[in-house]
């Protein structure tokens, strides 16, 4: 028993597991919208874009969260704006804006140097090096994201499901797309130090797709995704202590394991109870279009 609670006697570990649990829940919440909008690529792209902001804030000696956060919000809004040009498309818009932003970061590193240690933390995460400030920032952004989803639930759902009809029905879809873009940028900025640029996309996507496999109800998918994200964060960091592996990788691998279990359980030879299934037995409906648009 002592062995099981041993890591909790260390302050750095308590911080790490708190922040990873909240960051996992936060990514699970925002990830539902990312996945349902067919925008999984944006998590990957935006995290790279914010890396440029992280370097720029380091070089200009601006607070990381302020510099990288603003950079991320501008990048997200820019992607949103560019993607609305029908001739370009969301995926190409993400490609242009995010790689340009990442390249700015690399250019600044090669020109000014001195970011080497932070560079690794930004890329791969350093959950064991988080400070109390990092914890509070993640908690603050999680509360903001929860408030956005709570107060704009209907509008975000309608805009995600059927943006044209939502617009006709009086929902200002442009505003809600922008609000979601800002929330996503804030989420990635807050969790970058914890999870790392290269792994954030996975924490956004895996809990949400796992939840999708388990339910056909939107509200339940939100709840499950938040719960699964939190479990991945907690178990991932806890497991990394004993397995002596990178905590970011451990969080992601925990998610992959849960996804694999859900995938098998909800597959053709289902073991899930009927109330907790996503696939229907009805096959006589048209295949859906592949949604591809801005956040």
């Amino acid at each position: 028993m002592d062995t099981l609670v041993e890591p909790f006697q260390y302050g750095f570990f308590r911080h790490a597991i708190e922040v990873a649990t909240v960051a996992g829940a936060l990514c699970g919440l925002v990830g539902v919208y990312v996945v349902l909008r067919g925008m999984s690529y944006i998590g990957h792209g935006l995290s790279h874009a914010i890396f440029g902001g992280a370097v720029a804030s380091y070089v200009t000696k601006i607070n990381f969260y302020v510099g990288a956060g603003l950079w991320g919000i501008v990048s997200a809004l820019l992607i949103n704006k560019v993607a609305r040009r029908r001739t370009i498309g969301a995926d190409a818009a993400i490609g242009v804006v995010t790689t340009a932003s990442f390249a700015v970061g690399l250019a600044l590193i090669s020109r000014f140097g001195g970011f080497t240690r932070n560079f690794e933390a930004a890329l791969f995460g350093n959950v064991l090096g988080v400070t109390a400030t990092d914890v509070w920032v993640v908690v603050g952004v999680a509360l903001f994201a929860a408030a956005v989803v709570f107060f704009c639930y209907r509008e975000l759902l309608f805009t995600t499901f059927d943006p044209e009809v939502a617009e006709i029905s009086g929902v200002k879809t442009g505003r809600f797309d922008a609000l979601l873009a800002v929330t996503l940028a804030a989420t990635i900025t807050a969790t970058m130090n914890v999870l790392g640029v290269t792994l954030i996309a996975a924490t956004l996507v895996i809990p949400a797709v796992t939840a999708r496999l388990l339910t056909n109800r939107f509200a339940l998918m939100l709840g499950l995704s938040v719960g699964l994200g939190a479990v991945c964060g907690f178990v991932g960091v806890y497991g990394s202590y004993y397995l002596n592996i990178s905590s970011g990788a451990s969080v992601v691998l925990t998610g992959v394991l849960l996804f694999a279990i859900a995938f098998v359980a909800s597959g053709p030879t289902r073991v899930l109870p009927s109330g907790l299934r996503s696939e229907s037995d009805v096959d006589s409906v048209p295949l859906p279009r592949e949604p591809s648009r801005s956040v």
Binding site: F150, L157, F158, F161, F218
Partner: peptide, 24 residues
């Protein structure tokens, strides 16, 4: 329509309900 979107029939209809409520 994305028929794989996770909404029930009632949820789909209720998307069009009046705004202004501050609870989901």
């Amino acid at each position: 329509v994305n028929w794989y979107f996770p909404v029930t029939v009632r949820e789909a209809v209720l998307m069009a309900r009046r705004g202004g409520r501050f609870v989901p």
